[in-house]
Simulated scan of single mutants.
Amino acid sequence: MFRDATKLVPRDSFIDAMRRVASSVTVVTTDGPAGRLGATVSAFSSVSADPPTILICLFAESRIAKAVLENKDFCVNVLSEEDSDIADRFAGRHDALVEDRFSGIDCYGAPGTPPQIDGATAFRCVQQQTILSGSHLIILGHVRHVLAGAARPLTYRDGSYHRVLPKADRFLSAAT
């Protein structure tokens, strides 16, 4: 196990390199005894197909991390390329204007279950394991329900949103 923090790269070098990595833009939602909350999150990954398991990373002191821990379930909504406004909303960019981040957002799910955002690819999960690593909480969830969205995903890289284009589309758009 690696324990010598003096041999780690400088924080700024790590952040600079990570900014160059594209990631899907997701909104993690939860609902239950701790309330209905949602937040934009970029750290999401598949872990296993047997059993179906995903992970998310949340700032350990955040409201969403505390709510997911208490509610015991969550939904990862992978946003479509048209949903940058939803990503901004759940990132808190409109909190001064909108009291409830879910206001005006089409969601599915019974009260007390994590909301699924319309048009998103959704993975509804039950919390399986948590790991505290540095400032973040890694939450592994067993996937109980999926909803495969049809639209291309929204991605984030180097401080801005991007669209994913299949290689053939990229060459066609360059020719026109």
Results as ranks from 00 to 15, higher is better:
162 H>R: 14
89 R>K: 03
19 R>C: 07
150 A>R: 14
37 L>C: 03
12 D>P: 05
153 P>Y: 08
154 L>H: 11
47 V>M: 08
108 Y>G: 00
32 G>F: 12
12 D>M: 13
94 H>I: 01
3 R>W: 00
40 T>K: 10
19 R>A: 04
92 G>L: 05
27 V>Q: 11
64 I>A: 02
101 R>P: 13
83 D>T: 00
88 D>F: 14
81 E>V: 01
133 S>F: 12
112 G>T: 08
3 R>D: 00
39 A>I: 07
70 E>T: 10
136 H>V: 02
26 T>W: 05
33 P>S: 08
169 D>W: 14
40 T>L: 10
92 G>R: 09
26 T>I: 06
99 E>D: 10
120 A>Q: 02
146 V>F: 05
60 A>I: 05
46 S>W: 02
18 M>H: 08
1 M>Q: 04
131 I>H: 12
136 H>N: 08
91 A>E: 02
45 S>G: 12
77 N>G: 08
83 D>M: 15
52 P>L: 10
66 K>G: 05
55 L>I: 07
110 A>H: 13
70 E>G: 02
52 P>R: 09
130 T>I: 13
148 A>Q: 14
69 L>G: 09
137 L>E: 02
106 D>V: 15
12 D>T: 14
82 E>L: 02
65 A>T: 06
146 V>Y: 06
29 T>I: 04
4 D>I: 05
106 D>L: 15
171 F>L: 14
